[in-house]
Design a binder for these strands. Structure first.
Lengths: 306, 306
DNA sequence: ACCATCTTTTCACCAAATGAAAAGATCGAG
DNA sequence: CTCGATCTTTTCATTTGGTGAAAAGATGGT
């Protein structure tokens, strides 16, 4: 039922002026050309070519068919070229998903660079703190915190990262320094709101897990709200290093509980690039991944004090 | 390389919303659908469908491809229907070839009937006394005198016919009646001009062949010129019975040399329908052949006196 | 955790496509 | 008119590639 190939064959036969010539052009035996034309004629129930061993002319039906088929074939050829071009010159829209804080703080500043490098591309950056289904929402690339495990997804680590319990020097001046996770229950802890997770902070030291249900005067689903709260000396927050790295460096925030690994969710708080596992990764996706890897390379491991 | 089938498959998958559904629709296994879509994606080098076991969405390339493919497929479908229609409702031009005299005297009067029976058809009647190559000249049907022998042609006898040496009663009153072919050399013989044949009349009686080189005051390549000459008493002509049948009947011409078979060419002077030998005879050709056979049925054997 | 339904892989099987070669056709040249 | 070059068409043996069944893997709802 390979009608399209037969159409192209028919076209070549007409152009070449003989079955054999067409066969030589495309490298198949005259017998195959003969059978192809026959199959086409049979499927249409009409004779397309008047042929003897020396002459070849179109029947009326053949002329009609040829005239109608030529634009169709060139249309298809153009379509294939256009599709193929997508893998050479990126075009269209790239839909990216990230969590709000990471998208705002890390992605947003870098996107203009990416877009100016690829004028044919648009980016649709979707921000939400609930994970989206890549297929459902037609997400090309998602940036997620923590390793995801699904056989239909491809994972690649973008940057290492962890979370740090921290507070401002002003707050620490007014309050006792927490030395063990349990001490945090006496502190004003600024917690992230999620409809899926309780405000529980988990700590790991020497292979021993400690879970603390913390609470405080400020809860928010906006990551930066908590950071600002901590900076202003309101309380203690558990924030990712990619967010508060500069604050730790310049001393406006101080990391607490050294020696403890801390997290509100899982202990792997690195950022991962997540895409669907497919045979043909589109160029735009590949370019975006490459861009991200390069752009975050010098942040491969956010400086984490002590 | 059956790309067209793959395109249709892709369309059905999108419409059906799943590979399995498309498979059930067209009666193939899910495995085949899977392989078909894969082959299409591979040939394009692009992923068209985002698919998990529960969801199926189009990629951007898939959307583009779908949009471009739909008109193409319906175009092809329409084309096939149109071609198929040719075998139901005859349409287009039927090119017929015949010798001048037969075309003028026999075909021309019957054509209006044929055309009014098939309003969609046109007839292009080519008249010439030299045989044409059916393929070269794109002749659909030729009406020829005498049997042709070629493996690429289909022959069918339309009407029996022979040639008769004849003259008008007036001429015979002024001249001695020829009794043997040799007597004709003393007569004014009206001969047919052909650049391929000498004006030689051949006679057969009891298996014995006599050839006479005849001559006279009128030679022409117009068949009816000779007939009119004979009618006017100018001389003796060798004319086909389909032409002078009525003249013989009403006595305006008299057949000479009874018992002799006469011919200027071969001895088979019947009229044959000649077409190319093809697998799919087009409807218009078949209709014309049927029409001719029916129209000439009551002339199956032109009345030949004595 | 199970179940229904989907996609994907695997495998064995068979039909359909292929080329080589012969046969048939056609035309021009010697 | 025969021969030879070049087609088309047929024949035949071979093999590739497509096929479905069935298993395996994946997914979402109950």
């Amino acid at each position: 039922m390979d009608t399209l190939a037969h159409m192209q064959l028919f076209l070549r036969v007409v152009q070449g002026g003989s079955l054999s010539a067409a066969g030589r052009q495309i490298g198949v035996s005259p017998a195959s050309v003969f059978r192809g034309i026959n199959a086409l004629e049979d499927s249409l129930g009409v004779r397309l070519l008047n042929r003897t061993s020396r002459k070849l002319t179109l029947t009326e039906a053949g002329q009609l068919y040829l005239a109608r088929i030529e634009p169709i074939l060139s249309e298809i050829e153009g379509l294939n070229a256009e599709i193929g071009q997508l893998q050479v010159t990126p075009r269209g829209t790239l839909r990216v998903h990230a969590r709000m804080s990471f998208g705002n703080r890390q992605l947003a500043p870098r996107l203009p660079d990416f877009l100016s490098q690829h004028p044919g591309l648009c980016v649709d950056l979707r921000l939400s703190d609930r994970p989206l289904d890549l297929v459902d929402e037609n997400i090309d690339v998602a940036l997620r915190v923590g390793e995801v495990n699904s056989p239909s997804l491809m994972i690649r680590k973008l940057v290492s990262s962890r979370r740090v319990v921290c507070a401002s020097p002003a707050y620490l001046a007014r309050n006792p320094l927490p030395e063990r996770p349990e001490d945090l229950t006496e502190h004003n802890c600024l917690t992230f709101y999620s409809e899926f997770n309780q405000p529980i902070w988990r700590f790991m030291k020497d292979g021993e897990l400690t879970e603390c249900r913390v609470r405080g005067s400020l809860q928010s689903d906006g990551g930066d709200v908590l950071r600002l709260g901590a900076l202003k000396g309101l309380g203690i927050a558990l924030l990712p290093t990619w967010n508060i790295g500069p604050d730790l460096e310049d001393g406006s925030l101080v990391a607490l509980l050294p020696g403890y690994q801390a997290t509100p969710f899982g202990f792997d708080d690195s950022i991962y690039i997540v895409t669907q596992k497919v045979r043909h990764r589109s160029l735009k996706v590949q370019l975006f991944i490459d861009f991200c890897l390069k752009s975050f390379r010098d942040r491969q491991d956010w400086k984490i004090p002590a």
